[in-house]
């Protein structure tokens, strides 16, 4: 599995890896975004409404793009999201 496959799925590149279809790659990127959105929204239901749709989408895209999640438990995305927000906050402060 080429590294490019997961770079595309994370939204870190727009280059379709050789041999794969553009529609299939877009479907995988969409499904990962959907999974992240659903879990974060379940734990933090107010954020989406507070931010508005464009900013919410941008936030989740950034969360997915930098991801290096390791837990077997999907529910642990909540903790990853809090750590991501803390890192982003630190980065903005420096």
């Amino acid at each position: 599995m080429p590294e490019d496959f997961y770079l595309y799925v994370r939204g870190a590149t727009e280059v379709i890896p050789p041999g794969y279809s553009e529609s299939g790659m877009r479907a995988y990127r969409h499904l990962v975004m959907l999974g992240a959105c659903q879990m974060i929204e379940a734990h933090f239901p107010a954020i989406r409404q507070q931010l508005g749709e464009p900013a919410w989408k941008e936030l989740i895209q950034a969360f997915v793009r930098q991801s290096a999640w390791t837990s077997h438990y999907y529910g642990d995305l909540k903790d990853e999201f809090l750590a991501f927000l803390a890192r982003e906050s630190d980065r903005e402060d420096t």
């Binding site: 599995m1 590294e3 997915v64 991801s67 999640w69 390791t70 837990s71």
Partner: peptide, 16 residues
């Protein structure tokens, strides 16, 4: 299937 590269992305991806 794969759940990601060396990390989890909580979906199922194809194995060549």
């Amino acid at each position: 299937a794969a759940s990601g590269d060396a990390h989890q992305l909580y979906d199922l991806f194809p194995i060549p």
